[in-house]
Design a protein around this nucleic acid. Structure first.
Lengths: 150, 150
DNA sequence: TTTAATGTTATTATATTAGTTACAGTTTCG
DNA sequence: CGAAACTGTAACTAATATAATAACATTAAA
């Protein structure tokens, strides 16, 4: 499993909290990764309609939806993450033994099922929920000087 | 995620079906991997009490429990598989920004939760269930000549 | 028309996973 | 006893998956 889902959620929480446009460079600094990776992931979020982007000078990424309406399930689907699954398959479909030829598909079925219940589970967690969790009990530090959020 | 869980389930289904002792070489042939890997994984199953092993000539691995009593959850715990989780963490715990410093732990919490519900989900699937699924509607091919199961 | 941004591809580096080899220890059997 | 056939481990190599880097065409604002 890649961590694209984590990057996407992080970026959305950040953008929804700051409520202004931010460049891939700024997001990358906060997330601690590189701008190209951020752009790749954000372009998927744009295709899913979760963010707006603007090219050119003064451009960047912005979150325009209601953060309580965007669920982690939507984010997961947007980036195409697969929570449970392996590429390696045991046995061999061409063997005569029914176990050797059938196990891999059975395991895949189990992984698909687990993946599905994972998506269901995060369907009722919103971007706002995550934001609240992060700032729970602590001062929000709104309007902190620019370098503070790096 | 490694495929150790798949190898373990495959081996247990195979052993419970054939009901005799088999060497790591025979298991490896059926699973389509190498004997050393099989031995590494089987030693974990032994420590968990899911199989019995015998060293020396005529030794090998055997399944001695009731296959309907062994759940995939036990197997997962025995091999220590983690279904959901990533090693990469976004942000940096030392940054002042609460999002940058807090996101990784939040995501880890979500992954832990998803992992837990995955274990719960497979807790009521037994080795016998898998065996039945494999042979559902098809002839069991009991007592086939030796090379058949390779 | 320069500058600062996205969108995208190709390439490289790193980390994870599986495969291989080797060998010490154990048990059976001639 | 001693050879043969196993398990149990460890060390190393190969393959694959993931993240980082670099480059550049395109777009939009000043």
């Amino acid at each position: 499993m890649t961590s694209e889902f984590g990057v996407a959620v992080h970026a959305l929480v950040f953008l929804s909290h700051r409520q202004t446009t931010h460049s891939s460079e700024e997001l990358a600094q906060n997330i601690c990764t590189n701008p190209a990776r951020v752009r790749k992931i954000m372009s998927k979020l744009k295709k899913a309609g979760l963010i707006e982007t603007k090219e050119g000078a003064e451009g960047g990424y912005s979150f325009v939806l209601a953060p309580e309406k965007v669920s982690l399930c939507e984010v997961a689907k947007a980036v195409g993450v697969r929570f449970v699954g392996v590429s390696w398959r045991s046995g061999d479909i061409h063997k005569k033994c029914m176990i050797a030829s059938g196990m891999a598909d059975i395991m895949d079925g189990i992984y698909n099922d687990l993946n599905r219940i994972c998506l269901e589970r995060i369907d009722n967690i919103s971007i706002l929920d995550i934001r609240r969790q992060i700032f729970a009990g602590k001062e929000e530090k709104e309007n902190t000087p620019a370098p503070e959020w790096i």
